[in-house]
Amino acid sequence: MKPAPFEYVRIDHPDELSALLTEHGPEAAVLAGGQSLMPILNLRLRRPRVLLDLSRCRALHDLTPTSGGLQIGAAVTQATVLSWPRLAHQVPLLALALPHVGNPQIRSRGTLCGSLAHAHPQAELPLCLAALDGEIVLRSQRGERRIAAADFFIAAQKTACRPDEYIAQAHIPCQSIDEGSAFLEVAVRVTGQAQVACAAIAGPHRLRLAVLAGQATPQVHDYPLLPEADLRDQLDIIARSLALSCASADDDAYRRQLVVSLGLNALKQAQRARDRRAAVDAQIMEHRR
């Protein structure tokens, strides 16, 4: 299990990356943290002619809070995002989901953008980006374009990123202070690949559930504040409509079943979190008064 030969380029400046992608297109692969790409190279499931390593490109290492959210550069590791002190406050869903990604050593190298680029149907970060209405900045010599998560993930391991483009940044909007979040995941093994994961966001007037259950791309569903029985009906509809192709019928059935129960639990947890947050805010207001 050794990679096939490739030409290696250590990128120092983003412009070099764009130029080389224009030159090599589909024959190039972008290496950031390598935690998804390197196993694929070792197994020779991909054999790029040129490997473009952006991990030392300073300009892509920025984790920048913006007015409405968080701007995460291509080389920012998952560990860096997780250790950003305001994460739990500003994007609580991501703070809940990131500990489910890989393991500590993988997160130390793996980048958030790399996971999005890889677009594995069972990965947590694409799900979160979709749930959070995040956006991706794709850059090439032709310029930059911003694309919504919903349009970015096209199929399993297939994204809207063109051969001459790379993910320069991910934009994750801050969650509103009156929202509660929950992230629940079930895997055969505690740290294994998710069979089903549910990201839930509960606002004062709406509920959102993003579901990963083995289908090709993350699915996001919005609901008004419905009673539990109605939510269950809605989740049953999602579960039935999932396009799955698991190894066994049992596994398919299991995922559909879990979408309902885990989804409901996630929505309930998110609403409780929202209510707790509101109660804390009320206390603070009270205190200030």
Partner: peptide, 27 residues
């Protein structure tokens, strides 16, 4: 394992514990 699953090859690079099988020597 050479896919990052087993952890036997973990080393520290600039103090950070990581998989040496998922890193190129040139890096």
């Amino acid at each position: 394992c050479e896919t990052g699953e087993c952890g036997a090859c973990t080393i520290r690079v600039d103090g950070v514990a990581q998989r040496s099988c998922l890193t190129l020597a040139v890096q």
